[in-house]
Design a protein around this nucleic acid. Sequence first.
RNA 1: GCUGCCGUAGCUCAGUGGUAGAGCACUCCCUUGGUAAGGGAGAGGUCGAGGGUCCGAUUCCCUCUGGCAGCACCA
Length: 650
Amino acid sequence: MITVTFPDGAKRSYEKGTTAAQVAASISKSLEKKAVAAVVDGTLSDLSDPLQSDAKLELVMRDDGRALELIRHDCAHVLAEAVQELFPGTQVTIGPVIENGFYYDFFRNEPFTPADFPVIEKKMREIIQRDKPFTKSLKSRDEAKDFFRAKGENFKVELVDAIPAGQDIKFYDQGGWIDLCRGPHMPSTGRVGSAFKLMKVAGAYWRGNSNNPMLTRIYGTAWANDKDMQSYLTALEEAEKRDHRKLGREMDLFHFQEEGPGVVFWHAKGWTMFQQLIQYMRRRLTKLDYDEVNAPQVLDKSLWETSGHWGWYKESMFAVTSAGDETEDEQVFALKPMNCPGHVQIFKHGLRSYRELPMRLAEFGTVHRYEASGALHGLMRVRGFTQDDAHIFCTEDQMADECLKINDLILSTYRDFGFTEFVVKLSTRPEKRVGSDAAWDRAEAIMSKVLEQIAIESDGKIKTAVNPGEGAFYGPKFEYVLRDAIGRDWQCGTTQVDFNLPERFGAFYIGEDGNKHVPVMIHRAICGSMERFLGILIENYAGHFPLWLAPLQIVVCTITSEADAYAVDVVRQLKDAGLRVEVDLRNEKINYKVREHSVTKVPVILVVGKRETEERAVNMRRLGSQDQKSMTLVDAIAALRAEATPPDLR
RNA sequence: GCUGCCGUAGCUCAGUGGUAGAGCACUCCCUUGGUAAGGGAGAGGUCGAGGGUCCGAUUCCCUCUGGCAGCACCA
């Protein structure tokens, strides 16, 4: 006999080999019906697994959050079966659960299209209706390979090969359709229910390697019930409404065009925001003893060879030559993809003393990278962008302190933009790297300690994590990830310590001892790419910017032409107060004007008519509200001016 | 870069093997209207580019280019 302990502490005895399903049945009929899996000693398992020893057992109902993974996983199996039933000859590969759903990768000469979805979904519903049990069996490696080889499932044969020797190879049979799977599954296909939907098709490389064949991936979403699925679909629509590419067009912020793939045409309104961002950053940097510099756009390729970028990233750099001169000895330049070599040149220009350290060189540096065409995505991934970059030259002793100062700067900046949830990740040495292991050891040791301190000083409010092998080729880095208003995570800031580049460039300072020393260099960015950061802000605020950031803060709208002169005067006074304002004197009804400026998300509409003209007043309407507030012009200016003050100046 | 889909007016989108249409925006006229679209008229397109098939291509085929969704990449 074995003893089973339930979550409430109750214990019951069963014969050894009793399954969780039988345990459920022994308690109640409804439990037997409702349970879809078991958690045995903390591990999610099949209900059909026999219990071999004393165990803690929890029965998982279908509406339990932990069952969602099973619903999605089972749904992926159902999808695969449906596809193979409908399209014989299609090979199956893998079909994991992902956030909000699942996917399944298929190999078929003719790829699937969304037009195939209705018939596949219909077949899936049919399979779910059949409600066949999932039954598990074990095969030896050879049996498994023979099984798949006989079916022509070459990808599955490879998967079997990849399973470590000695490990059980599990198969699940769902009414005759059998798949390799580590499980667990619910008792039968019927439990998948009806809240699922195929979402899109896409190509995906076999095993994620671009040298491998391309498979067709079908993405699906699945939920415990229709209500959950509906709210997910609604959330997707909401996210679409905030798409910065759409808002950028509607708010007249920027555009792209064919002649400049991946480079932004900033319109006046977008550029205003860009400048607000830069001015904010610049004020903060000045207070923190940074020196702003500007290094050339185009530099001889030898500099990039020295830095190592040419060797590592040549294929994604823009080379620049004279268009007219076709002689052979022409010098090859590169458009800068990074600011660091330029800053090292500035550091090197002149003999540096330890007294000058830490030397913090900042630049709003425009860089160009020839990103793969498929990687381009609005402002989020471009080929020409501006980094709020800085390089701090310091001693090894000063390093940890500088990292902490940067940490404060980054997090307080994010807070000023309304973000509250962050994760700091430490990325350690990658396989492709320069520098000695000893140097990496030292750098990583310091960084780990700093990371610990960040977590402690924030009382655990700042989450931390480690990304092994994700560091830059010249050093480990901290990555700052923020969470936006609709729960999406964005990696923006980064702090990278570098024991290599200064040495490669022969940078040194004279130490207290009168000898030459190589400084440590810290690369750091807060927004990262200003373009991308603005994209994130647009989506985070859904275009409803706080007043200090809004490209156009106020529109003064007249009701009748009798108010024109007064309206112009109001605009003058608002402009004199430093506010960004336009006047709308058009021969249109006030409804029309209010609608238009609301659609383009102007935060404040000041309406002036006959009354206001007589009283030297304005009628204020805020974006997102129908309320109207009448006040004197003097009061309105004072209030708006205060509100438009950037957070660092309050 | 890879796979799939797409490219028609400033925007959103119809449509056709016989050289194109709507709504909004734009211009003009009427209207001076109190908080999310007043009425009328007009102008606006080498149907992404090049090549091919055809009597004839915006439509069918090929190449290129750009975009979208994933994948891969992201110093």
